[in-house]
Design a protein around this nucleic acid. Structure first.
Lengths: 149, 149
DNA sequence: TGCCATATTGTAATAATTACAATTATATTA
DNA sequence: TAATATAATTGTAATTATTACAATATGGCA
């Protein structure tokens, strides 16, 4: 899955008249490098090391701004954690219930429009799957072999 | 969209060996009647009127139990509100960004499995759309006519 | 009926998020 | 380059949702 480059995002910000402040750039840059769908906490901890003056409020502010202008997407797959993702092409999110990792997968919801929603204006489409990822599945198998359950 | 009857749910609970306590029945009954995908707060307020001894913690406990045994589904379409829904057939949720109402719509994600997830064990599938519902769209049109924008 | 296991309650802790006023930084213009 | 207006950032405090836990109450079965 192709992710946007940092430079292309900067141009987009400029074109929208958004100031390229130091902290904003840091948050944005982080999102173009960490594809693990980080939480606010993770972003804050990672950036706070090199920029000790960064506050968590600013991370919230920046993310909300980036979401508003459509550069970042909110992932509400779980009710106790909000995650963030650089906006890319149509893709769904799979969360492993065992290791907690979130995987992207391609899905096309546009080719066959929902008849029931003909007269609705659709702005966002999110697809969330949950289950067990292959890596955890094979670990479970190994455990079974070892303990001979 | 067919919803399960209260009686069929009671049988399911019994078959799982879950006690049919007063409060549990009340919460469950409420969910079979209110299809607006209520929040914990809404359920608590509605039931607290007739059962003043009901605590919000009990509503949480009961909902978590019902989710665990698969009778109730969590809707995380928005990051600041968790909603609950009696489990039914495959359906997606559309949230109107103007009036906040959540609409169900039928969607079949099982007929064409995702190639990328061949080796994943999928337990849940959620589809969340956001946008403007027809009723709000027509209100916007009327406003435009009135103010001649 | 009486007992035991479980459900419920209520308070308090935790955690996520937002509000807001004071301060600081930025970009622009002279 | 310096002054200025505008916007960003900070930090604290408030708000809200959710969970933990111990004490109490209750339901179901012998």
């Amino acid at each position: 899955m192709m992710n946007p480059t940092f430079e292309s995002l900067l141009n987009l910000l400029k074109s929208k008249g958004i100031r390229l402040s130091h902290h904003r750039l840091k948050v944005l840059e982080y999102l173009t490098k960490d594809f693990s769908h980080p939480t606010v906490e993770q972003i804050y901890i990672a950036l706070h090391e090199e920029s000790p003056t960064l506050s968590k409020t600013t991370v919230y502010n920046t993310l909300n701004l980036l979401v508003k202008i459509g550069l970042v997407r909110v992932i509400n797959i779980e009710d106790n954690e909000t995650r963030y993702d650089i906006t890319t092409k149509n893709h769904g999110h799979f969360k492993c219930e065992s290791c907690g990792k979130i995987y992207d997968f391609g899905i096309d919801l546009d080719s066959s429009p929902i008849e029931e929603l003909k007269s609705f204006k659709i702005n966002y489409k999110d697809v969330y799957f949950k289950g067990i990822c292959p890596s955890c599945l094979s670990n479970i198998d190994k455990t079974k072999l070892k303990t001979e359950e």
